[in-house]
Amino acid sequence: MAILNILVFPDPVLKQASEPVTEFDAEFKQFIADLDETRLDAPGCVGIAAPQVGRFQRVALVDVSANPKHKSNGYMVLVNPEIIEWEGYKKGREGCLSVPDYTGNVMRATSIVIEAQDADGVMQRYECEGFEARAVQHEIDHLDGLLFLDRLVSRRNDLFERKVYKK
């Protein structure tokens, strides 16, 4: 096991798209274990993508289950993930291990369906909502060379975001 070095912007490689995974061998599984150890080493971090540690393959890990109030699929290994359904959108605050000391507001779909292979290459399907859906979209963006900085919306002049009016 190893904690990997996290690349930070303005390192230009974070803006490059990653390649699909084709080999699901022992080395790949070890990499996934190291990647998750790296994620867990960062306080509060709910997701990490392979390009953040300089491996330009389409792999992202998401686990929002540490906070029980988030609806969660638990620990998800997302290899070659595709978002196949989107619904709703909501603004939320994001930060990133690759962009220290800055958080910003980003619009994301509120519920998504994803198809991805797992660490063994077996196709899986996940339905994600809310915070977990946000995390998945943030991580998949990394695989396409996008940072949350590419999707910022203003922190100011927001409309009311009340979902339900309460008397």
Binding site: A42, P43, G44, C45, V46, G47, I48, A49, V62, G92, R93, E94, G95, C96, L97, T103, F131, R134, A135, H138, E139, F160, E161, R162
Partner: peptide
């Protein structure tokens, strides 16, 4: 008034 928690995602 309305209040919303800011649940910052770190990813």
């Amino acid at each position: 008034t309305s209040l919303e928690e800011i649940d910052t995602l770190i990813g």
